[in-house]
Design a protein around this nucleic acid. Structure first.
Lengths: 166, 166
DNA sequence: CCAAACTCGTTGCAAATGAAATGATATTGA
DNA sequence: TCAATATCATTTCATTTGCAACGAGTTTGG
């Protein structure tokens, strides 16, 4: 009955956690050193580039950050002058958050470097293997989608860019 | 020069982070509900099962947890009666941490469930695709190993169980 | 032999985190 | 109309986190 054999180093959740943390940290070195950002701020900026003026709730729903974390990230970014908050037009509760010119410039600086790091990580991986890699990741998400004990996926993560368009 | 197109949802570091967090959380539901453990405690227990009486430093080096986190996890586990600390024989600084019978029983309970969850996640993935998946993960690690900006891998994570033994 | 340098585990502390509460605004339904 | 309910962003609060400092023990080199 005693489970004599169980290797953390071949256990999928552990492996994912270790790799993810290492990759995230490597990336954060980049935008941390160059612009003093942390991961939450980076995600907010990137989301704003894509979606323009949006609410805290929208960011929360799209980039996998808890609401308070988004709120605080936005505050810091506003203090740094990278985003601006304007009172929502119709709904008085909503806050419209958008990039400032400085925010754009920061992204224009960081994004190429981020892409470069990503490219470097998988440079030597064949397109087929990379497609398989992403497909397996997505499959795991799909399994979790049917698991009532798992946290639901955010809407945005449901439809990642297709690796192999049919 | 403006990077018009950058999708977080297809960005490798982000995808890894989201999946990893979701998988970790699903797993922690298991050992959290059944034994009140958090991830650090789970990792410590599993490592002890494999390596017997070891030091805080050794755990730190093997399961990707900062030293203070290991120290605190061990304290909690000791308070719960799942591990015991004995003064190191030769070196007075070292503490020999080992599982108690209750610790063994807890693992005997959790590990099958953990394996079950892992199996469930990749049940429908072909062995070849799964091997590719792990191979790509390991390749990314290898790239980071050569990157001076990246945090070094722990010794234990260097040699994961081979997916396809030759 | 012993002082300097190192290693071990723990603790202090400041920052980050997330669940829940709060205050403000919108929407609903009677 | 207007109370009851829901939603939004923020704040509160207790906990967790990691870096750095620390005290204790060990090794090294003169």
């Amino acid at each position: 009955m005693t489970p004599d054999t169980f290797h953390l180093s071949s256990f999928l959740p552990y492996r994912l956690a270790v790799l993810s943390e290492r990759v995230s940290r490597r990336l954060s070195v980049e935008y941390g050193r160059t612009h003093g950002l942390v991961v939450a701020e980076w995600r907010v900026l990137v989301h704003l580039l894509r979606c323009g003026a949006v609410s805290v709730r929208d960011i929360h729903n799209c980039v996998n950050l808890e609401k308070p974390r988004v709120s605080r990230a936005v505050s810091r970014l506003e203090a740094e002058g990278l985003v601006q908050k304007t009172q929502g037009e119709g709904d008085g509760r909503l806050v419209a958050i958008s990039l400032t010119d400085a925010g754009y410039r920061a992204l224009a600086d960081i994004i190429p470097a981020a892409k470069q790091i990503e490219r470097h990580l998988v440079k030597a991986v064949s397109p087929e293997d990379l497609a398989t890699f992403f497909r397996v990741m997505d499959h795991i998400h799909t399994v979790l989608d049917d698991d009532p004990e798992a946290k639901p996926r955010t809407a945005m993560d449901l439809r990642p860019a297709p690796a192999t368009p049919a």
